[in-house]
Write a protein that binds this DNA or RNA. Structure first.
Lengths: 202, 202
DNA sequence: GGACTATCTGTACGCTGTAAAGATTCGTAC
DNA sequence: GTACGAATCTTTACAGCGTACAGATAGTCC
C-alpha cells in the first residue's frame, strides 16, 4: 500500500466524518479503526496520532451525536402545554434514535468510549438539561428553585421511557406486539400511545 | 498447546458455563470465543462443532438470561394490587439487570446473537408475557379478551421505562443527578420514585 | 538554508473468529 | 472381540483487528 501524501490537511475531521459515515451506512458493529483510516485515505496507524486510540475517535463522534440529539429535543419553550412539550421532546429523542441508530448505540456504549472524558459528559448533560427545563414547567417549579427529588424522578421517568422505547424498537422487540415496525409508524402511532399511557393529558 | 482428551464429556454445557462466568466476572466486552474455549479446556475451534459460531454460543447464554429474567419478574398474581405488582415486576427487571449486567447487555445485542433463533424469541416472549398478565389486571381486562391497543401501550410503557432505567443506570448516566449509584440504593430509593411518577397509586 | 516539530508511513506483534483437514474415540453391528 | 461409520476434538492456517515503535516526509521558524 502506498499513500500519496504525508500531510493530509485536516485528518481529524476526515476521520470523524469517515466514522460517522460508517455508522450511518453499516452500523456501529461494522466500525473498525482501520476502515475509518481507509476511508480517510491514510494508514491504519495514522488515527492514533490525533485520537490516541479507537475510543478517542469514537468519543469525538459520540459528542457530535449528543449535540445532534440535543437539537432533536430542543423545542420552543412557549409552544403548547408542558405535557405536550415533553411528548414532543420524547418524540424527538426517539426520532433521533431511529434515524441514526449507529450514533445512538455508540453514545451509550461506554465500553467503546473514553471513560472519563469531560467534553462527552458535558454533551450528555446538555441533552437532558433540555428535558429538565420542561419537567420544571410541568411541575410548575421556577428555574431558581432546587431540582428536588420529585423533579428528578419525573425527569428520569421521562428519559428512561423514551430511552427504553428507542432501544427496544431498534432491537426489533416490538415486532410481535406490533407488526408495522417502520420508523414512521412507530413514531406517529405507537410512541404517542405509549407516552399517553404514562403522561395523561391534564 | 496440548489438550488431554478428545472427548470432553459435555462440552456444550461447559462452554455455556464458561461464557456465563466471563460475563459475570469481566463483562460482555471481555468475552471472546477463544477465552470460553480456554476455560473449558478445549481448542479454539472446538465450539464451532456444537454452536456453529460465536453467535450460536452467545444465543444459548442469552436464552438462559431471558429465563433468569423471567424468574426475576414472576410474582404471585394475588399479591397486592395490580399497580403494586407492576412495580414489583419492574423492580425485579431492574434488579436482574443490575445483578447480571453482562447477561442483560448480551440479551439486547442482536448483533451478537443469531438473528432468527426461534428459541430465543420464545424466551423473550415468555418474559414480557409475565408483564402482560399484570397489565391486564391493571386495566381490568379478563384473560379471554383481546390484547388491544390500550393494553399494548400500557405494557410497552412499563417495559420501556424499566428497560431504559436499567440501561441508563448501568451506563452510569445517573451519577450526576444522583450521587449514590449503588445497586441497592438505585433499587430501594430511585426506582420507586421513578415508577411512582408514572404509575401513581390509584 | 538549516534545524525543529508535527504529521504520517511501514513494519511488526499478539490477538481475534473460523475454515479445512486430520486425529481420536464412541457406538454399534457383526 | 473387532471392524467400521459417526461423532468429537485438535492442528494448522488465514485474514482481519488495534496499536506500539521506528523512520520518512513536510511544514515552520530562525
Amino acid at each position: 500500500m502506498h499513500y500519496i501524501r504525508y500531510h493530509h490537511g485536516d485528518l481529524p475531521a476526515a476521520l470523524i466524518r469517515a466514522t460517522d459515515e460508517i455508522l450511518a451506512e453499516r452500523g456501529l458493529e461494522k466500525f473498525t479503526l482501520r476502515e475509518a483510516a481507509r476511508r480517510a485515505g491514510v494508514s491504519p496507524a495514522a488515527p492514533a496520532h490525533h485520537f490516541g486510540s479507537s475510543a478517542g475517535l469514537l468519543t469525538e463522534v459520540a459528542i457530535l451525536g449528543f449535540d445532534e440529539l440535543t437539537r432533536h429535543i430542543s423545542i420552543d419553550p412557549s409552544a403548547g402545554g408542558p405535557t405536550d412539550r415533553l411528548k414532543m421532546q420524547g418524540a424527538g429523542y426517539v426520532r433521533f434514535a431511529l434515524a441514526f441508530p449507529g450514533r445512538f448505540h455508540l453514545m451509550f456504549r461506554h465500553d467503546l468510549l473514553l471513560p472519563d472524558d469531560k467534553r462527552l459528559e458535558l454533551a450528555g448533560e446538555r441533552a437532558w438539561s433540555a428535558l429538565a427545563e420542561t419537567v420544571r414547567a410541568l411541575r410548575s417549579v421556577p428555574d431558581d428553585h432546587p431540582f428536588d427529588a420529585e423533579l428528578r424522578a419525573t425527569l428520569l421517568a421521562a428519559w428512561s421511557t423514551v430511552h427504553g422505547f428507542a432501544h427496544l424498537a431498534l432491537d426489533g422487540k416490538f415486532s410481535r406486539l406490533y407488526p408495522d415496525t417502520s420508523s414512521d409508524h412507530l413514531l406517529s402511532q405507537l410512541l404517542p400511545e405509549v407516552l399517553g399511557a404514562i403522561w395523561p393529558q391534564r
